[in-house]
Amino acid sequence: MPDAVATRRRGRVYVTKSVAPYLFLLPFMALFIAFLIAPLCYAFGLSLFKTTMVAGTQFVGAANYLKVFTDPSFWDGVVLLFKFGLMQIPIMLGLALLYALILDSGRVYGRNFFRIAFFIPYAVPSVIAALLWGYLYGPSFGPFGQLAEFFHLPKPQFLLDGTILGSIANIAVWEFMGYNLIIYFAALQAIPQDLEEASSVDGATGLQYALRIKLPLIMPTVIVTIIFSIIGTLQLFSEPYLMRNLAPGIINSHYTPNFYAYTLAFTNQQYNYSAAVSFVLGGVVAVVSYVFMLLANRRAA
């Protein structure tokens, strides 16, 4: 019996101190390597070769990457997403912040109801969301079109060259506003109550308290959501992919960089070039996120 205890204790000490954290990390690391690092390495390997129908496979080094840098189909998509992001991210996060502050102000009845109601669109798969909005945008089938027809007004055109980017942005706002709202709301809830008492003692109005005290306190959270949104925007795929049926003349097969990579791999049989496009897109995401972080930090400092 004493022996057993001693063994157990010895064993416990040994494992806990140095190996235990790694044992706990092991499942994660195994999956991380198997499903992220290994595919990334494989894709990077692919991007250095060129397989053609006639000439077979050759090592081409950086040639695929050089081609991406001068490929208008890719950069047009990136520029489009910058436009999209500059329009969509401020609206989405602005609304999320506004609603989060209102809900947190304690002046709204049914706070839990609104929290869930705002969040529901995020729980709707983006495929369903695009189908749903595709119907709403339909010129003769959609309710807006029918309503306009009923009142003999010109039908709103949601799927034309000038409007479709806004229409897609609207879907993204609808989908992700609630998600960001929940994050802001959680951050606001973490602000100690006594700050509000202190500010009201100092004579601050509710609005001043919200803008001058709460907002600066949750600024780190806001910055994180902006970075998430930038990354999400640059990876836009399913909404345009699904809306293509409705507006094939505007949403072409290289509308967004991710869509372009998909087309290259699965329609054009250019797996190697597709891998290179994906890596350059990853690079663009990294650069844009980093630049934003730098700007945000400089302002904070």
């Binding site: 034309l160 072409n252 087309t263 329609t267």
Partner: peptide
Amino acid sequence: PFQDFVNQTMQDEMSASIAG
């Protein structure tokens, strides 16, 4: 022998013409 590419490009280009 690469009809998928042809179809995709045809759809892109002709639809773009229709759209202006």
